[in-house]
Write a protein that binds this DNA or RNA. Structure first.
Length: 437
RNA sequence: GCGAUCAUAGCUCAGUUGGUUAGAGCACAAGAUUGUGGAUCUUGGGGUCGCGGGUUCGAAUCCCGUUGGUCGCCCCA
């Protein structure tokens, strides 16, 4: 293969791929707009510090970062959250609450590509700022579900697992763990699904072996799958903090249920997500068959905007990626069949007819119709074949006979019916013929 | 960063123990067919066999390296 290759983990979008990506973006954008979110965009290149402040210096290894010609340390954005926090933080006082924003953008991570993960990918991000209550979670979880259901995916295709980092901390506190120990336990929980019991090895090394009684309680908590079980597990503990979390859990599950989405959501405390900055509910969407990476993930991050140097503003958000979503849509046969077909294919008798047709072609296009015609003169048979292959709904026939009569023949490609209309009425006739299609 | 595996036409692939000028289907283009449909038939374009080196009289084939894809580990915002 001569010439150049694209960089590893970066995709080229040929028209067929592009139309599939457009379907994904369109579905997300429709969902967000229906939920009353406003779209924004932001720089692709950011100061490196924006990410090291949020995630620590180790993050640099996963970034496309470099020093620019002005000596600034910069990075291609690996995520939207710090940027949108800066944007909202900078104008927090002037923005009407609740702030409901979304974006569709490309992100870059310097990692080895694998199934469902590339170095350049697109994400839909939705966030709500300025609402501390669980109403924000209800809105976002419902939007997340619509962002997948909008493709025709159902409760049999995907589900959302809901968990809560604060609840874990309060529960572990009630069991007598200190803060550092609690973080160690959460780290183990994050790995437990994949590694099983070995997940607790790291904890044992730093904090000593976990006693059997408390380990059993942690594992039982981990296996909780419903609100009822959760209430039962917390009943023995007298804690205002736990009671308050439980009240929020009831609100979220009630709200999502009242929207008719109960079948899409499960209580699953096994989800804690690696990120230390989450402060409350966390949630992830997965395909039911479980052979793909996470489809989407998010949660509450009430402290992040303050940490970045702005106001103390509560926030919840999630992101959903185009790679895994595209794989799932493909698997379920929900990808669009083929790219857009023309509305009208113009059949030309010859050079004189071509010239005569050009004015009408331009007028039809100006009216918004998608119009195609052959660049080179060809037999009528070939042109009709091309018209059929293009998927056009109508063919307009400009032949010598028609022009001599001052008419154009309109052929409906689906039922092969034809009729003649005066040339002056072509645009109206096309509009009538395509009405309701 | 580590490991496994793969790489032949735009796509899917064949290519014998190493042996003449590397093939097929699909796709694309032209013709049969200058007034009516996705068919059929004929023909054509398209390859430094990923790239570089080595072994050999001779390499798509064997060896080494490298680049890229895929899958996994680490990580996963």
């Amino acid at each position: 293969m001569a010439g150049f290759q694209s960089l590893p983990g970066f995709r080229e979008f040929y028209p067929e791929d592009f139309s599939r990506r457009q379907q994904i973006f369109r579905t997300w954008r429709q969902a967000a707009q229906a939920y009353g979110f406003q779209e924004y965009d932001a720089p692709v290149l950011e100061p490196l510090e924006l990410y090291t402040t949020k995630s620590g210096d180790e993050i640099e290894g996963q970034l496309f970062s470099f020093t620019d010609k002005g000596g600034r340390d910069v990075a291609l954005r690996p995520e939207m959250t710090p940027t949108v926090c800066r944007m909202v933080g900078a104008k927090a006082g002037a923005l009407k609450r609740p702030i409901k924003w979304f974006s569709i953008a490309e992100f870059y991570r310097y990692e080895r590509a694998q199934k469902g993960r590339l170095r350049a990918f697109n994400q839909f991000n939705a966030d709500i700022f300025g609402e501390a209550g669980p109403e924000a979670e209800i809105e976002l979880i419902a939007l997340l579900i619509q962002c997948l259901a909008g493709f025709g995916l159902t409760k049999d295709d995907f589900y959302v697992r809901l968990s809560d980092r604060d609840l874990w901390f309060f529960y572990l506190e009630a069991l007598g763990f200190n803060d550092a120990q609690a973080r160690g336990i959460l780290g183990a929980i994050d790995r437990y699904e994949k590694m099983g019991d070995d997940a607790f090895k790291g904890y044992a090394e730093t904090h000593g072996e976990l006693d059997a009684d408390r380990k059993a309680k942690v594992l039982a908590f981990l296996k909780i799958k419903s609100l009822g079980e959760l209430e039962a597990a917390l009943a023995p503990y007298q804690s205002d903090k736990l009671a308050a979390r439980l009240a929020d859990w009831r609100k979220v599950l009630d709200g999502v249920g009242a929207m008719g989405l109960a079948d899409f959501i499960t209580v699953d405390l096994g989800v804690v997500r690696g990120l230390a900055y989450y402060t409350g509910f966390v949630f992830e969407a997965f395909d039911r068959k479980g052979d793909l990476r996470a489809l989407a993930g998010g949660g509450r991050y009430n402290d992040l905007i303050k940490k970045l140097g702005y106001a103390d503003l509560p926030a919840v958000g999630f992101a959903i990626g185009d790679v895994t979503t595209g794989l799932l849509i493909e698997q379920r046969g929900l990808a669009p069949k083929h790219a857009t077909a023309p509305d009208v294919f113009v059949v030309l008798g010859g050079e004189a007819e071509r010239k005569a047709a050009f004015a009408d072609i331009r007028a039809l296009r100006a009216a918004g119709w998608r119009v195609e015609y052959p660049f080179k003169d060809a037999a009528f048979g070939k042109q009709f074949k091309a018209a059929a292959e293009s998927g056009a709904k109508l063919a307009l026939i400009y032949g010598g006979d028609e022009l001599a009569k001052g008419v154009v023949k309109i052929r409906d490609m689906s039922d092969r019916s034809e009729r003649e209309v005066p040339r002056a009425e072509v645009v109206d006739a096309v509009r009538t013929a395509l009405a309701g299609r």
